[in-house]
């Protein structure tokens, strides 16, 4: 569908490429290439190690050319650690999907409510929500563990879904709010004149117009849920344990099984990389809460 850019034209002035720190073009390329090499090298290590045979993995000096083997992936998926990674992968997918859905749903609701309605203490609620971004999970893990235990939700999907939702809310609210504010209020007033109620306007006018924002926040909060380890390892053991929990379970014994281990790592990291490239610019807005656009 159409993507909507209300700022179009606002930045229409041509940018000159005059730059204020005097790097020569050569130096630019050189530094950039070295930096990119540094950034990509560990990914190469994950990938190559996961495709090496055991003897190549421990070879000294490291072998750069090797015979590709898929054994590690087979082992990681079905054998490694008794069950293989598959059940944990599925748990991760379920929890990520549902917590993202909830966070984006609730988050866009509250963001809309606070931008478009006069609410007593509205700006305070906003800053309260923002401030939860900084809640250090490790400080909350003790009380939340006891609460979850009391509620009988230890090692359930629901526990992680709710906690991740609350953790990602601040991110969603702060990104989506910017998108809502960019909608000219008259568009919604026109819908009011046309006979739509406020909630209907939210659903039929406002939400479709912030679709790009919804997609962005969905991906971002999905990645954060997917990557989360500390809460998961405390709240789950088996039934609802996620991929990081599975991975961490071997951190004591990993002297031996580097191949499958890296195969799991590759599965955990590589899909996310695509999203990261897609998001790029939104990353700034998302992770800095719009303080930098």
């Amino acid at each position: 569908m159409t993507s909507v850019d209300f700022d179009a034209g606002a930045e229409a002035t041509p940018r000159s490429s005059k730059v204020v720190l005097g790097f020569s073009d050569y130096a630019r390329y050189l530094i950039a290439v070295v930096f990119v090499g540094f950034s990509l090298f560990p990914f190469y290590i994950v990938l190559s190690t996961s495709l090496k045979s055991e003897s190549d993995i421990f070879a000294w000096p490291p072998v750069w050319l090797f015979d590709v083997t898929w054994d590690n992936y087979f082992s990681a998926l079905f054998v490694f650690g008794g069950t293989g990674v598959l059940p944990f992968l599925i748990n991760s997918l379920i929890i990520t999907a549902l917590s993202t859905l909830l966070a984006v749903g609730l988050g866009s609701m509250v963001a809309y409510g606070l931008t478009r309605f006069r609410v007593v203490g509205g700006s305070h609620i906003f800053f309260f929500i923002l401030s939860t971004r900084f809640a250090p999970p490790v400080a909350f893990v003790v009380p939340i563990f006891l609460m979850i235990r009391e509620a009988g939700l230890l090692d359930t999907h629901l526990a992680l879904i709710l906690i991740y939702t609350s953790m990602n809310l601040s991110l969603v609210v702060w990104i989506i709010r910017g998108f809502f504010e960019a909608i000219p209020i008259e568009i919604e007033e026109a819908a009011q004149i046309d006979g739509y109620s406020r909630l209907q306007i939210f659903r039929k006018v406002a939400l479709p117009l912030v679709k790009p924002g919804l997609i962005t926040t969905s991906i971002l909060s999905a990645i954060l849920s997917w990557n989360e380890f500390l809460i998961a390892t405390v709240m789950t053991q088996n039934t609802a344990a996620t991929l990081p929990v599975y991975l961490a379970g071997f951190s004591g014994s990993m002297g031996l099984e580097w191949g499958p281990f890296m195969a799991v790592g590759a599965m955990a990291v590589l899909p996310i990389m695509i999203f990261t490239l897609v998001l790029q610019r939104h990353l700034v807005r998302g992770l800095t809460f719009g303080a930098v656009r």
């Binding site: 909507v4 008259e186 568009i187 007033e189 004149i193």
Partner: peptide, 20 residues
């Protein structure tokens, strides 16, 4: 009465069309 119940139509200065 709400806007719609009053049966008014309104054209906005910035047109306020639904871009989607």
């Amino acid at each position: 009465l709400t806007c719609a119940q009053r049966d008014v139509g309104m054209a906005f200065q910035n047109y306020a069309l639904y871009p989607h």
